[in-house]
């Protein structure tokens, strides 16, 4: 059953379910979380970076991870699509569930996991190729070769990331020639090209000017109707603007998770309050 569900999602993302995002609290059992971590700990060698993180991430919503530098929020984000596997000597304990299935299981193929859980990095990293090839790379390596299909995907993704009108006449140009903001939107388009279910964003706008940042935020707002988005940000205004849920991390621990509005106006933990009011961090 889960397989069928996943397959249909691959073919076409199902329409968004209206009204679920609003008014539901994190731990309410009315909705199955898209991603869930239970007592998850993370180690760099012998150094423990994350301690017993219990977190549920809602489907088709934006979850923001905030916290001071070095608190483990990026590590947490990267462990959701096993990007940390690349680093030697890292280890995860506890459960990380995607649609209720453990992603650190032996039989889970990292490649197909990363196809389902896309990622956008802080520094825009377009491949040193043409704009078209950048976006077509994901489908191509997955085995899609038909030119018309690829063109369709490229156009859809560029439209989704609001870049199509700016680059439609120069798809053959190098992606390196784009501006910083355009590059970042290209990276988002590239991540969308493999039709993921979840988008992980690691401070996607931190290196951009305010105008580009605003465009990225608009984009995230659009995308959350179809995708589950987890975003790490240092900018608390940004977190407040775009996210439904916010999780506050501090020194490898999840301090608080709650609805964004509630967390920013009425935090339950002292540490959270100190952080968001600027007294700490």
């Amino acid at each position: 059953m889960a397989l069928v569900k996943r397959f249909t999602q691959f073919v076409e993302p199902p329409p968004s379910k209206p009204g679920v995002a609003e008014g539901a609290s994190a731990n309410e059992p009315t909705q199955v979380p898209k991603i869930e971590t239970r007592k998850m700990s993370f180690f760099y060698g012998t150094k423990q970076a994350l301690h017993d993180i219990n977190l549920q991430i809602r489907d088709r919503a934006v979850t923001a991870l905030i916290g001071p530098s070095g608190c483990g929020k990026s590590t947490y984000l990267r462990s959701l699509n096993r990007m940390n596997d690349i680093i030697e000597g890292t280890r995860v304990t506890g459960d990380v569930l995607l649609d209720g299935e453990e992603i650190y299981d032996r039989e889970v193929d990292v490649v197909s996991l990363r196809k389902r859980v896309g990622m956008v990095f802080q520094k825009s990293t377009p491949f040193p190729k043409s704009i078209f090839d950048n976006i077509a790379f994901g489908p191509r390596i997955a085995g899609l070769t038909k030119k018309s299909e690829l063109q369709e995907i490229v156009e859809r993704c560029l439209n989704q990331s609001a870049l199509w009108n700016e680059v439609k006449d120069r798809l053959k140009d190098s992606a390196m020639a784009l501006s910083g903001g355009q590059q970042q939107r290209l990276c988002i388009a590239r991540a969308l090209a493999t039709n993921p279910e979840v988008l992980l964003m690691d401070e996607p706008a931190s290196a951009l000017d305010p105008a580009s940042t605003a465009r990225i935020e608009d984009l995230i707002f659009e995308l959350k109707q179809k995708y589950t988005i987890v975003i790490v940000t240092h900018n608390m205004q940004q977190a407040a603007r775009i996210s439904e849920m916010t999780a506050f991390f501090c020194v490898g621990r999840l301090v608080e998770i709650g609805q964004t509005k509630q967390l920013f106006t009425n935090p339950t933990q002292k540490e959270t309050e100190d952080y968001i009011t600027g007294r700490f961090g």
């Binding site: 699509n81 690349i86 196809k115 790379f137």
Partner: peptide, 19 residues
């Protein structure tokens, strides 16, 4: 970052190296 970007899209190690 280039390798990570390729891995994040779902490229295998070989594809990342080769492409």
């Amino acid at each position: 970052s280039l390798r990570h970007a390729a891995y994040a899209i779902g490229a295998t190690k070989w594809q990342t190296i080769w492409h």
